[in-house]
Design a protein around this nucleic acid. Sequence first.
DNA 1: AAATAAATAT
Length: 628
Amino acid sequence: MQATITSVLQVIPTPQSPLSHQTSNNTLRGLESCSSMSKLKQFHAQIVKHGLSHDNDAMGRVIKFCAISELGDLNYALQLFDKLPEPDPFIYNTVIRGLLKSQMLRDSLLFYLCMLESSVRPNSFTFPPLIRVCCIDNAVEEGKQIHGHVVKFGFGFDRFSQNNLIHMYVSFRCLEEAKRVFDNMCERDDVSLTTLISGYAQLGYVDEAFQVFDSIMEKSSVIWNAMISAYVQSNRFHEAFALFERMGCEGVVVDKFLASSMLSACTRIGALKQGEWIVEHVKKSGIELDSKLSATIVDMYCKCGCLDKAVEFFKGLSRKGISSWNCMIGGLAMHGEGEAAIKVLKEMESERVAPDYITFVNLLSACAHSGLVEEGKHYFRYMKETYGIEPGMEHYGCLVDLLGRAGLLVEATRVVNDMPMSPDVGVLGALLGACRIHKNVELGEKIGKQVIELEPQNSGRYVLLANLYANAGRWEDVASIRKLMNDRGVKKVPGFSIVELEGVVHEFIAGGRTHPQAKEIYVKVNEMLECIKSAGYSPDSDGMQYDIDEEETENPLNYHSEKLAIAFGLLKSKPGDILRITKNLRVCKDCHQASKFISKVYNLEIIVRDRNRFHHFKGGECSCKDYW
DNA sequence: AAATAAATAT
């Protein structure tokens, strides 16, 4: 990007080609509906015959098809370009877009330099794709230079360029720059606003996002949606719901995007009642149930713990998109219904829907959660053999998880070592998890250290390794992990659990006392623990989660968010009720054990969704059969 | 002749 701009500033405009004749007009019109490269080559031949092979207008259309269309051929476009004596800005822009589309990011920037060197003046269409290139390539320096060019060539107030610049600076995490571009605009549109709002939210500045949102006088539904999703994304569900309500009061119509965002909010916190309300609304208001929305609904039912309703809704779909199939299989996986998941795959095949990459991720995860080792191994090969799907990182992750959980650590390690790509944190994390389950300290230590260095800010990894050490009685190592976390300023993610009772969502944070009935709840926790102790429960401090926080005075193990949520549920429910809990972390061993006892002693069904899967506690047993 | 953002499944 060394080219100087000053030399290009005085450019002589490219002379326009002579007008095309009637015949060539017809040829050009035909090009619009061109359906393949071989058809295109016929058109090209016609153009040559009419003596227009150097005509920018005609050749521009040909190049556009080759460079941009799905059926095109970028190399052919480049060959044609080379034969043009004086390509115009449109043609340069088109090739730049084509290079972007083919992920040839560097070449796209270089091509822009060629444009400048040939003294062809960029226009307002030149910059948006270039800005995207910098954005995707994370090319911060080049991005700033392109921004300079935008201004110097006089497009500093072009809305498309500005919107793309906002997007670019957000992706560079330069929010001040993004805001500066935004403030500088004379005319902001929905794109400018949503880009900035979601940008703030992505980087954790939800309140700043709200300020922008709040400053808008006339809010379109797109803007409402952006702000609501911003809250959902930041786990601030109460605010999302509150805003949704306010939106209704202001008479904004719920469209499919809003329905989708709200459903995903319900899904994330496991708010079944609210989710069902949205589904009813979708049905009543005639919002089009497209395949994406259907998938969202299937997913909502699954993740809110209602497998039956998910299945019912799924079966009722007249046209099932691939994502609905995938959500259904994924839902069954979470509930530990491996055999059922395999059955759905077979149904899918008999309905001639081709499974894709994600189908097999979900299917393999179903096998892993149900301990279906042979089946899992079979489908791992099958997807390649039958559908030509090359196993990706996620598939390897599932396979390692599958083998590791089943105690086949040697085989799991071999898979990791023989993978064609180098294993990411997910894959190694699966192996580490297996080491913890099967108490393999040597391997676990080695993998644990790797995983921590790959993701130094992820507290969960430290906790996992510390647990492994604690398990082996290696307390000095536990202490050194704790020190490492402190030195690096890694904060443990606070665990929270959510319960929906009578349509109201209650949230509990481990050791927290913010709930209005906190006092009663804590009394109930103690009573509850005493009660199950006499039924044979003994606290299991194996998990060691508590020892990692030094400042806690009480034993936080007793006040894990899940126990608070259950105690609250006990206060509010009658025997025979079902208690649904959603939590952000994984269930710890002690809570798992306690939940089993509680389900028996209090005759209460408890359905817990953790980070990974569902646990259905009933009569002293858990649906995961302690396999999780 | 031409374009940017926002939703689902790991």
